[in-house]
Design a protein around this nucleic acid. Structure first.
Lengths: 145, 145
DNA sequence: CTCATTAACAGTAGTAATTCTTATTACTGT
DNA sequence: ACAGTAATAAGAATTACTACTGTTAATGAG
C-alpha cells in the first residue's frame, strides 16, 4: 500500500554525481555534468531530485554561495570553507565544534535544534595569491603614475 | 576633492530600522517598515543601502533564508538560530566557538580565513509546538478513518 | 546667494535562479 | 495486457535582486 520510491537511472546518476565529487556542486553544475550522458535531462529534474535527496537525508545543503545553492554528498560532521572571491567550497574534516552543542543550545534557549553549520569565509590559497599580486601591480601603477 | 559620503534621512532611517530590531530583517521587510513614513521609498534604494552598509562594516549578512538575504545590525560575535519552518532568525549571544578558530583553520589548511558563521537549524518553540499539535491531529484523523 | 557638480534617489526594465504546471513516459502490481 | 502512479521534459511563471535612466537635492567654490 505504501508508495514505492523508484530509482531511475537519472535519479541514481544525479546522486552519484554529487557523491562522486568534492566540489560541492550547484544544481547547474550537476546538470552540465550529466547532460552529455543524459541528453534529455531537464534542469527541473535535477532540482526536484536534489530536494528529494535532501529530504531523504542522502545529501545536505552547504548554503547559498554567489546566489546558487550548493550541495554536499558527505554526511559525516564537518565544516566548510567558502572562498568569497572564486566561490569554491572546501571541506574541513578536522574542524567541528563539540557534538553536544546542538543539545546545549536546545536546552539553553528552549529550541528544537536539529543541526548546525560552521562555515568559514575568506580567500583560498590561489585567490589570496592572485590578490596580493594584483595589489603589487596596483602599487607599481600608483608609484609609477 | 574627495567624494563626500552623504547621509540622507532615508539612508539614516534604513540603518536605524536594521539596528532597531532583532528580527534580522530582509530588504523587503525594511522596505515595508519604512514605506508609511517614506511614501516615495524605492526598494532599490533599500537594496543599495544594505550593500553600502555592509561595505562600511555597519551591518552584516546572516545568510539566505527562504531565498531572501537576511541582515543583522549587531556586530559583536555571536551565533544564529534559523527556524526551518517559519524562517525566523534568533541571536544566540552566549554561543560562539573559540576566537582563535579562524587562525587555526588558516594555519591548518593554508587559507586566508577572515570570519566564520555558526548557524543552528531546527524548529523554534512555537513551530515545534504547532507541529506536534498537527501530528496529533493527523494521528486522530488516521485512527478515526 | 548662485551655480556647477555629483551623490542619492525613484521608477522601471531586466536578469538569473528556482519553482510550478502540464502533458507525457515508464515502471509496478494485478 | 492493463490500470494506477511515480518520474520526467519542456517551458512558463515567480521571485529576489540588479542595472539603467532621468530627477532631486546636498555640497562647496566663487
Amino acid at each position: 500500500m505504501e508508495r514505492a520510491i523508484r530509482y531511475s537511472q537519472k535519479r541514481a546518476d544525479i546522486l552519484a554525481a554529487i557523491q562522486g565529487t568534492d566540489c560541492h556542486p550547484s544544481a547547474e553544475w550537476v546538470y552540465q555534468q550529466l547532460k552529455p550522458s543524459h541528453p534529455g535531462l531537464s534542469l527541473g529534474t535535477v532540482y526536484r531530485n536534489l530536494i528529494f535527496f535532501r529530504q531523504q537525508g542522502l545529501i545536505q545543503s552547504v548554503g547559498v554561495v554567489g546566489g546558487q545553492e550548493r550541495f554536499d554528498g558527505t554526511l559525516t560532521p564537518h565544516s566548510h570553507f567558502v572562498c568569497d572571491s572564486c566561490g569554491s567550497v572546501l571541506d574541513l574534516p578536522g574542524i567541528h565544534p563539540d557534538g553536544d552543542l546542538d543539545q546545549t543550545v536546545s536546552r539553553q534557549y528552549g529550541l528544537s535544534v536539529q543541526r548546525h553549520e560552521l562555515t568559514f569565509h575568506g580567500l583560498c590559497q590561489s585567490c589570496a595569491q592572485s590578490q596580493s599580486n594584483q595589489s603589487d601591480q596596483n602599487n607599481k601603477e600608483e608609484t609609477s603614475a
